[in-house]
């Protein structure tokens, strides 16, 4: 069964259609790139999958269920903007996640924090922006979830931190779980993707395995993206 599936999914904000009749399927064990320019509907789609928004029409299913309490147990979400309580220390944050999520692997989180030499006693607000982003990713990837929804995980960080984030995603790979990464920084993520979904103006314009696209077109996903979304 698909871990994430939508049928005729639409979402409107007033008269603006953020998503318009989206059909998609994400199978287990896949790392999927949700790729599109700013304002294409990426974040709306992820928020719908999380139950933070409700569809205007159509449906979205996580592991066969409409988003709700049961699906939140198996979905690990990294929002676009940092949402961790910054008055906590990194150590307290790990405890908070452990209390909140039954699938949180605290040992894994602590190992990752130790490897980055994050001071677990310092308040999060005193950490650098890059470290805060990495810390939040560590929390999200330390859950043994079935679906990881990462909204712009590499948006505001330097290239070394980007590599770290991508390595963390690869090393936490689990063949029964899926990862959806939304981004417009294609060249950075394309090596780690199994499948790509191009989204524009609320429509899916292309959905295919990344290597298949490269094979057919003799171009990188980044180049194909630039052509599809040429301004």
């Amino acid at each position: 069964m698909a871990i994430l599936e939508s049928k005729g999914l639409s979402k409107s904000f007033g008269s603006k259609k953020a998503l318009d009749g989206v059909d998609l399927k994400v199978e287990p064990g896949r790392i999927v790139g949700l790729l599109g320019p700013n304002g294409s509907g990426k974040t709306t789609l992820i928020k719908l999958a999380n139950g933070l928004l409700v569809p205007s029409a159509g449906q979205i299913l996580v592991n066969g269920l409409a988003p709700g309490v049961e699906t939140k147990k198996i979905v690990s979400f990294l929002p676009e903007r940092s949402c961790v309580p910054d008055w906590m220390s990194a150590g307290q944050l790990a405890g908070f996640y452990a209390d909140f999520y039954g699938d949180f692997d605290r040992q894994a989180a602590e190992n990752m924090m130790a490897r980055l030499e994050i001071d677990t006693k310092a308040k999060i607000r005193h950490l650098s922006k890059g470290t805060r982003e990495k810390l939040q990713l560590i929390m999200v990837m330390s859950r043994r979830a079935k679906l990881y929804l990462l909204d712009e995980p590499i948006g505001g960080v330097d290239p070394a931190a980007r590599d770290y984030i991508l390595d963390t995603i690869i090393s936490n790979y689990n063949p029964t779980a899926s990862v959806v990464i939304s981004t417009h920084l294609i060249s950075d993520v394309e090596k780690v993707l199994d499948d790509v979904i191009f989204i524009n103006n609320g429509h899916i314009v292309l959905s295919a395995p990344a290597d298949e696209l490269r094979e057919q077109q003799g171009k990188s996903v980044d180049q194909i993206f630039r052509e599809v979304f040429k301004c």
Binding site: G29, R30, I31, D163, L166, D167, I170, S171, Y173, K191, V192, L193, D194, D211
Partner: peptide, 17 residues
């Protein structure tokens, strides 16, 4: 596979293939 995937910075499925 996982180690090689990490070293190459690619998806484990790609390395497996």
């Amino acid at each position: 596979v996982r180690e090689m995937a990490l070293e190459a910075g690619v998806n484990p499925n790609t390395m497996q293939r």
